[in-house]
Computed example of a mutant assay.
Amino acid sequence: MTKGTFHQLSSEKIATKYGQLQQLLHAENEPKFRFTQIAQAIFKQKIHQFENMTVLPKRLREKIVEQFGSSILGIKPVAQTSSPQADKVLFELSGGDKVETVAMKYRAGWESFCISSQSGCGFGCRFCATGTIGLKRNLTADEITDQILYFTLKNRSLDSISFMGMGEALANPHTFTAIRTLTEPELFGLSQRRLTVSTIGIIPGIQKLTRQFPQIHLTFSLHSPFDDQRSELMPINKKYPLADVLEVLDEHVKMTGRKVYIAYVLLPGVNDSPDHAKKLISILRKRMDLKQLYHLNLIRYNPALGVADDYKRPEEHDIRSFYQQIKQAGFKATIRQSFGVEIDAACGQLYGQYEANKRFSDN
């Protein structure tokens, strides 16, 4: 049998374990189909232990284990909370840092996964539990995709994936490598349209996403239409002011033809007044020619561990009132379904509880 030759791998691809596996196979003068066998063992047969990939020669399995360890999965679950519609898992990374991932089950039968891109976050949004942790570090591309691999190996259906967990996805350059891995046909094989990236408004990252992954869904976290208040709630607004971000989003919409979702967490007595709704409507009216490509998602705030008591969960009638003002003005809006309040599904909650329990047990 003629052995194939591997294509030259880019430095970006070699940065992932899948690229490094290909590099090892090439160094061992293995045929090209060996990587296909490994990929099929992982993603079709759900085998994560290399020694159990019996389609590979024993010598090769031993070589892979020697270089990569026993499992393709490089993160370890250390805590989990569950409800009928959501599972939240805390993973430990190499070096001991931790991140959270949430798996959500919709009544229609499909599953969505909310993954983290950083351990902690350095942007300090006032109402966010992850912001109270501070930034520990960026995740590698493998650590990002391993969150999805964990559920893949459990034969869960990857209907949609959102970069909405711990951290700011567009502040981590490895996010783009992770997206390439998730959309690689021989690996996870996901369409760009099944991925959503959420951002607080990192302009260079939005522009890069527009160029490299134009079909990915983009969500912009707004949370206040008033510049002064937004800067107070979200300090990033001082570096990337709201008007500048909106201009870049307009360009994204024009270039890609893809809808932008505006996330708005309702904070009672903070950003849910009629004046806030009117200002939000005025922002949307300024882009009437793009009206069909902006969609407002109203989100119930989940009280978060370590965050000021000023921020409460909104009452349903207040949510409905705010929603009706937007709808009556003729704009698209949705009250997003709430998952896992009983399991503290807000980002950073499980992390904070785990660390608190650990400190208590250590004492």
Results as ranks from 00 to 15, higher is better:
Glu232Gly: 03
Ile299Thr: 02
Ser224Asn: 10
Ser221Thr: 04
Glu247Gly: 09
His276Phe: 06
Phe220Arg: 11
Tyr301Thr: 03
Tyr240Ile: 11
Ser273His: 03
Pro268Thr: 03
Phe220Thr: 01
Lys238Tyr: 10
Pro241His: 07
Ser221Glu: 06
Val253Asp: 08
Asn237Thr: 12
His223Leu: 04
Ile281Tyr: 09
His252Ile: 06
His223Phe: 08
Glu315Gly: 12
Val260Lys: 03
Asp272Val: 02
Pro241Ile: 10
Arg287Phe: 10
Ser321Pro: 05
Pro314Leu: 11
Leu242Gly: 05
Tyr240Cys: 14
Glu232Lys: 12
Lys254Gly: 00
Arg230Met: 07
Arg300Ile: 12
Ile299His: 05
Glu251Ala: 15
Ala243Asp: 14
Arg313Asp: 07
Tyr311Met: 09
Thr219Pro: 00
Pro235Lys: 08
Pro225Gln: 04
Pro225Asn: 03
Leu218Cys: 10
Asp227Lys: 14
Val248Met: 10
His252Leu: 10
Lys239Val: 14
Gln215Arg: 15
Met288His: 13
Lys259Met: 14
Leu284His: 09
Leu296Tyr: 11
Lys239Arg: 15
His252Arg: 15
His252Lys: 15
Leu280Arg: 08
Gln292Thr: 13
Pro235Gln: 06
Thr219Trp: 00
His295Gly: 02
Phe220Ser: 05
Ile319Val: 15
Pro274Gln: 07
Ser221Trp: 13
Val307Cys: 13
Pro225His: 05
Ile216Asp: 01
Leu290Pro: 06
Glu247Arg: 14
Glu232Asn: 05
Ser221Cys: 10
Val265Phe: 11
Met255His: 11
His217Lys: 15
Arg300Tyr: 13
Lys312Thr: 09
Tyr294Trp: 13
Pro235Tyr: 12
Ser224Thr: 04
Tyr261Asn: 11
Leu218Ile: 03
His317Val: 10
Ala304Ser: 15
Val270Tyr: 00
Leu233Val: 08
Met255Gly: 00
Asp318Phe: 05
Val253Tyr: 00
Phe226Asn: 02
Ala304Leu: 11
Leu242Met: 14
Asn302Lys: 07
Met234Tyr: 00
Pro225Cys: 06
Asp309Ile: 04
Lys312Ser: 04
Leu296Ser: 05
Lys312Asn: 07
Leu222Val: 12
Asp309Phe: 01
Lys259Trp: 01
Arg300His: 10
Leu305Gly: 02
Tyr301Asn: 09
Arg287Ile: 02
Tyr264Ile: 13
Asp275Cys: 00
Leu290Ala: 06
Asn297Leu: 12
Arg285Val: 06
Met255Thr: 15
Leu233His: 07
Asp244Lys: 13
Ala277Asp: 05
Leu266Gly: 08
Ser273Tyr: 02
His217Asn: 15
Ala263Tyr: 08
Arg313Val: 01
Leu293Met: 08
Thr256His: 07
Leu242Trp: 04
Leu290Glu: 11
Leu222Thr: 09
Asn237Ala: 14
Ile262Arg: 07
Leu222Cys: 08
His317Ile: 11
Lys254Ile: 13
Ile283Gly: 01
His276Cys: 12
Ile299Ser: 03
Glu316Asn: 13
Phe322Ala: 06
Ala277His: 03
Lys259Pro: 09
Pro235Ile: 12
Lys254Asp: 01
Phe322Val: 04
Tyr311Asn: 04
Asp228Arg: 14
Ala263Ser: 14
Tyr264Arg: 12
Asp250Asn: 15
Ile216His: 03
